[in-house]
Every structure is written in C-alpha cells, then in structure tokens.
Design a protein around this nucleic acid. Structure first.
Lengths: 374, 374
DNA sequence: GACCAATATGCACACGTGTGCATATAGTGA
DNA sequence: TCACTATATGCACACGTGTGCATATTGGTC
C-alpha cells in the first residue's frame, strides 16, 4: 500500500523508456555502458524527490528522514537503515537550499570581479573559487570578459541572500557597498581600501611596490624612465601611478613619458608601440601590470628588434605565471595571490563568527622579483 | 503606532554608531565620503528586511508588497507609491531565493570545470560565466587550480536545486551524470560525448583537428613527427591521440616519439626537454594543446637554441590568446570557445523550454590556423 | 512495582515569497 | 436601479527543510 508511490515512479520510467529517443551512438558507448535498472531520465512532470517521498516509502515520519541526515539526532538503527535504503532507491538528497533557507545560511558567496580576461584577475578568481569550494561555500562569479563590471551587476546579485560578497572591482562605489551592508551582507573588498563601516579590505601596498621598481631602475643607472599605467579610474592604478610619481620626485627624476592603457597585453602592445616609436624613447619602462609589460616587450623585441634589457629595461607588476617563462623572464613586483586569498578567507571566517565586528584592513606587502629584464 | 518597527531600526542604528569602531582613515575618505543619514552597518541581531516589514511600514498587506514587484499585477497607484517609499527607506529587496523556492527555479547553474589553471578552461569558464550573467542566471563555479576535479565535488553541489549543470571535466563518469538526472537536474557536457539519456553534449571534432595538423606536417615535408599529449584519462586526449595515430597510419608514417604530460606549460617544458634531448630528435611535434606547445617552444628556443620552425616545427591545439602573440605566433588547431558557448546557451534554452526532450549532441568543427611555427 | 534517565518519535512552526481564490469596490452602459 | 466588467485587495496555501516541544517507549536501579 505505502509502496504505491514508488511503483508509480518506476512504471512511469519504463513507459518513458520507449518514448525517449537516444542520441546517436558513439564510440564511448561501450566504454560507459548504461547500467541496468531504472533509467535516470528527466521526466517533465516529475519533481525532485523530497523527504516526504522518502518518509512515505520507508514508512516513517518526515521528521525521521530529516533526523537521518542530522548527526547526533536520536533515531533507531532500524529506522535509519530503512530510510537510507529508501533514499538510495529514490535517489534522494536533502535540498540544501531549503535547509539553509530557515537557518539563514545560503552558503552562497558572490565574487564580483573586474575583467575576467585579465590574467591576474582570472587566476585570482580561480584560486578563490577553489578555496571557497573547500569551505563548503558556493562561489557565484559575477564578471565580464569584455569590459569592467559595473555596480548594477552587484545590486542584481544582492537579490539573493548571500553569506558574503567579495568585491574585486577597482572602481566600485562606496554607495554600492553600503547597499550591501543594509541588506546585512558582509562585504570584503580586495584591491582597494574603502572607508565604510563594517567592510573588510585587502590591498597590496602599491605605493611601496612602485618605489621598489623605481629604486631598481635608478640603481642600474637608468635615466630616461617612462610609465605605462592602466585605466586611471581604477584604484590600483591610482595608487601605483602616485607611487611612481613620488618615487621619481624623491630622486629628482622627470618621467620621459606617462601613458595609460587598459591593463591588457593588447593595450601594452599598442601603447607600447606609440611610446617606443616616439621621438624620445625611454631606456626603461615601468608598467602598471605584467600583461602590459609583456605587450611592451613584444613590441621592443619582435617589432623593433630592440634588446631587452640592453636597449630597454622593463619592470612589471603582479608576477603572473607567464612572467617566469624562460622566453620572458620578466622582472616584476609580486602582488601575492596566495597571501591575499589567505587574508580573504581569514577575514571571512572572522566575519562569520562575529558579523558585527568592525571592519579590518589588511595591507599586503609586495616583493621585488629580480629577473632578466631590468 | 505602526511606525514603531521603523523607529526601532533607526534607533538601533544610532546606538550602534557610538559603539562601532571605524577602520583607520585613508586617502580615499574624502573621495568617497560616507553620506549623511542612517549608517548602513551590520547589526548582529538584525536580519534581512522582508516584505512583511515593508507591509507594516506602508500599512498594507504583505500580498500588496509582493504585487508591487510583480509586473501586471493589480495594485492602486497610491499603494504602489507608499510601498515603494517604504521599501526605499528600509532598503528592501525581494529575496530571490525565496521567490525561486516555490516556483522551482533557483537560477543556479553550476559550472564544473577540470583544472582552472589551464588557460583554455579558465577563459572558457570566464566566457560562460559572462553569458550566464547576461541570462540572469547565477553561475556557481566548481573547480580546482591544483588538480583535476573529481566526481565527489559534483555530487556535493547537487545538494542544491540547480537549474542546470554544465560539466567540463574530461573524465566525468557516466554514473555521476546519471545521479544528476535522477535529481531532475539537466546536464550539459562540454568536451566529451556521453551516451546517457537526456544529456546534451558538445565536443570539438578532435579527430578531424589532428588530421589537419598531420596533413600540414606532411605537406611541408616533415618526416620525423613526434606527439606530446595530455593526461590519457581525459576524453579529449583520447580522441586527439587516436586522431593523430590514424592520420599517421593513413600516410604510412611512424611516430618518432609519443609522450604524455598534463596539458600545462610546465608539463610541455619538462617533457619537451626530455623529447628534444633524446637520441633521435623529431623535426616536428604535434602537441595536445597550446600550453604544452608553448612549453616545447621555450625549450627549443631558449634552452637548446633551436630554430622554430627551421629545426623544429610545432603545432598546438585550442588557439588560446597567447598563440597569436608576436613572440609565439603559434600554428594551431582552433577549438572555438565562442561557438561552443553559443552552443551551450542554445542547448540550455532548449532544455529549459522542454526538460524532457531527448539529448542532443553537437560536434564543433575545428579550424587550422596557419602561423609561423610549422 | 516505582521511579528516573535515556532514547525515540511525531506534530507543528518558521523561513520569505508568489499566486489562486474569493470577495470587495469602482466604473460603465442600458 | 440593475447588471456586468474591470480593478483592487486580503487570506491562505505551497515550496522543503530543521528543530523545539511534548509525548511515548525502553532500560536500569532501588
């Protein structure tokens, strides 16, 4: 009697099996034979199996099913087994969203990132995703590959009850962050410092990094130093540019050229061409990030046949994976992803433990990585 | 009287303001001044504002609030205005998860990807994320940067009611996919063909791609052709390797060497060193992907001082962005990401429209991109 | 047998929303 | 005034789960 439901499902599946058309056979077929038993096809009318269904099959109350998945809950061994069997037969898994729904934890953590095509941001996001997966969180990525992300996308994802929001968009408005906080969503900003209550921030000490780079150029006797930055609207660019200018002034040096591109290889290549073909060519270029530095290096070597570092010294910023490839071996300022991710995870855990704690700011120390381009 | 709730909130915030400690001031502070009015700090005890709260403030029923956010619903202009004002004052946004909870649409789409540090997979994921964002879906990324992802991670994310699951893990088991289908979660597999009912697949015609590459080597008179593939467990590698072997046999050519690495630059570099320093060096190497091809190229040029393509011809697979950088200018087989993503989105939409439709398989046509390394 | 603690189990509520249904009000035409 | 339609609004249910509370059963000790 109580097995009626179960029978209805299997019979429904058998009926379906005759109707559904298989995709064309492939060579994979014998490698991965479909095992015998009920075919796991999607049935338009049927919905996900719930605890109620399992309870009906196992002949227990729905509460018992819930307890079967709760460690430490009182439940007789006999029932636990019956429930487990029924769940197995039906393919039941507790709906984590429904569970989190009343415990007020969605496990959703949104990662808002600037431009995913930027190699550094891509690796950064991937690394953060990996860590969040390890913490049992669901990383929801919000980003674009074409352009930098805007604040409207952040507001959209806020419609979901996030456990936290990690923002890595250099131009996010303080006003937007405040809207997050009003919805009681903890915010962590990476890549810029934001003076808004309750927000945790991490940022590389870009100023110090640029000072290191200029010091290296000065030490090796470069006199005609140029600068190629990213989009001036981005916070990282503002700090790096200011750091460069300050370091130059300190040494009474005048920049030969100062240009801005878009933090991409293509940008570095195009603007690098303009700089190097200009009337007074620098003998050193400090780049706002590695991608642009590689673009400049390509112009120098491939297009103009210049010797790097003989004719032109180049220093980048970030230390992306490509920087240490033998063909580049780029001197650069490391903006350590691992340290930053560790910091984010640490801040997240502190915030989960005490949502109302005051905001904390972590400055990440950059490091000069001497290679062969300066 | 009915405004008691609102007053409680504001007074609670004002009390808090004296207790919470500000983060240290920064130079950003005057750029982004905190606007006057209630400070949007997180309050440990307070929860997200609900429609019920808005209803209380606006003096209407909760249904009315819901209708205020439903286009086309009957609601007097007067009420709509009052609700909008109250919502604005409280910072209310409908909880999208609760809304989707009973309409059986979570908007969550999981993307399971092999190794996020693989450049191709990284860009692929980023592009798919961008598209899904545009469709109003929440892309949940499951992946690792260290190793290839396993099936257990897929089963974990299945605890959430996904709208769909896009798998790009070359070694996913058919059994795992069946578990997804049993939970009524549509599955799209990219990068391999899986003969399981209701599953949509996309896969580049790797066999044809390798045939093109071998044809190019043969045309330019290369006789001593070697092969460097990825991990043999991955479906893409199996197809590519088989394609290479078949194309060679067809021309009565014997491979000089056949090795396998891990689809990474480092793998290509290390195994490339082994191949090129061996006793009989090939005059052409066909690589399983571009990353390894670039690794091989680095060994050849930087370490051994070989001329590419004079001493050694190289052809890769994928056509990643780096392949067309001037310093590489790598001849390769394009595995077009844009076409693949278009296909995924198209399959997704068909699947949403008719969840029970039979599985469809799309073969993506590869294209030979002649550059200067062959 | 009496008492108590430990174990087992079901009921009912909460979580936040959309919406079907019933009902109330306003507007229009005869 | 009546009938009919268009508009407006609230009640109550559904979605799937965890859990507090009350109650029932068991096992052990005096």
């Amino acid at each position: 009697m109580e097995f009626f439901f179960f029978e209805r499902i299997t019979s429904s599946l058998d009926t379906l099996a005759t109707k559904v058309q298989f995709p064309p056979m492939s060579s994979e077929n014998e490698l991965n034979p479909t095992p015998a038993g009920p075919k796991p096809w999607i049935d338009a009318g049927r919905k996900r199996v719930t605890a109620e269904d399992v309870a009906r099959i196992a002949g227990v109350s729905r509460s018992a099913v819930s307890r079967a998945y709760t460690k430490g809950a009182y439940l007789s061994l006999e029932k636990r087994r019956r429930i487990h069997d029924a769940a197995e037969a039906l393919g039941y898994r507790p709906n984590a969203l429904a569970a989190g729904f009343n415990s007020n934890r969605s496990n959703l953590v949104a990662i808002v990132t600037g431009n995913l095509n930027n190699h550094y941001d891509g690796v950064f996001t991937a690394e953060l995703v990996t860590r969040l997966n390890g913490l049992g969180k669901l990383p929801v990525v919000i980003g674009r590959t074409t352009d930098n992300i805007g604040d409207s996308e952040i507001l959209e994802v806020l419609d979901y009850p996030l456990d936290a929001l990690v923002i890595r968009a250099g131009s996010v408005k303080a006003e937007t962050v405040e809207k997050c906080l009003r919805l009681q969503v903890p915010v962590i900003v990476s890549g810029r410092i934001l003076a808004v209550g309750n927000v945790d921030c991490l940022c590389c000490d870009n100023h110090a990094g640029m000072e290191m780079a200029v010091a290296e150029f000065a030490r090796s006797g470069r006199q005609r130093i140029g600068y190629l930055g990213g989009h001036p609207e981005l916070s990282a660019e503002q700090e790096r540019c200011a750091g460069f200018v300050a370091a130059m002034q300190k040494r009474h040096l005048e920049p030969v050229v100062m240009e801005h591109a878009d933090f991409s290889f293509e940008g570095g290549y195009t603007t690098g061409t303009k700089i190097l073909q200009g009337s007074d060519r620098p003998d050193a270029i400090l780049c706002g990030n590695d991608a642009m530095a590689l673009g400049v290096m390509n112009v120098a070597r491939e297009t103009l046949g210049l010797d790097v570092p003989g004719d032109l010294a180049i220093i980048g910023f970030d230390d992306i994976e490509l920087a240490c490839w033998p063909c580049f071996d780029l001197s650069t300022i490391r903006n350590p992803i691992d340290v930053t991710i560790d910091g984010i995870v640490s801040l997240l855990e502190s915030r989960f433990a005490d949502p109302a704690r005051h905001g904390e700011t972590i400055r990440i120390a950059p490091e000069f990585i001497p290679r062969s381009t300066h």
